[in-house]
Amino acid sequence: MQKNWWKILSFLLLVYTIVGGFLLDVPRLFILNETIRNLYFHVCMWFGMMILFSTSFVYSIKYLRGFNLRNDIYAHQYAAVGSFFGILGYATGTIWANYTWVTDQSQSLGNILREPKLIGAAIALLIYGAYFVLRGSFTDMDKKARVSAVYNIFAFAMLFPSIWIIPRLVGSLHPGSPGSESGNPALNFKDIDSRLRMVFYPAIIGWTLLGVWITTLRIRLQLIKDKTLLHD
């Protein structure tokens, strides 16, 4: 119980997010209307992804400091769940954009995918995709762990230009773009209605905790699979 309180918290927060997210009152803006409720899902996925990738990065550094295979398993699983969150964030964002960023009648999905924010996100996912390909190409466990830790650290460093810096430089319809007078490329914190905040902040915590929960389950499974290799 003492160790599992955060799992219960995650469950309660997500129940609140889904019930409150669909039923509580939201501001109705032109075009956006009720779709603003996607804020509780779409944006939280990116928060979750960033936190999971950062954790993976930290475990990769820990691996290179002590060469403990356990840390490599941690880094791998955090990156895997982080990428999954990234894919979900990309999908929810694309669908949302497809209905709200209507600029002309002949708008196609191809036009939307050209958005700087989406390009940056796609690059981030491709970088982590390469990380998994790299892991798959080794037969030697130690070598795999060492080289993929190196690539993971490099990938995390390259994540910043692709999702935090470049999208800031180019105009986009996404909230928080250069035109909209905000420092954050993802969303404008000063611009959120207080009714949205009531659900949005708990939702971030809830989804992130869920991500960590999924990862811990995967790590435990992997640790059992590699039991014979981990002699500690």
Binding site: G120, I127, A130, F154, A155, M158, P161, I165
Partner: peptide
């Protein structure tokens, strides 16, 4: 592998 690893990383630049 060089192409697989390098292309996503070089994209921002």
């Amino acid at each position: 592998l060089i192409a697989i690893l390098g292309f996503p990383v070089i994209l921002p630049q």
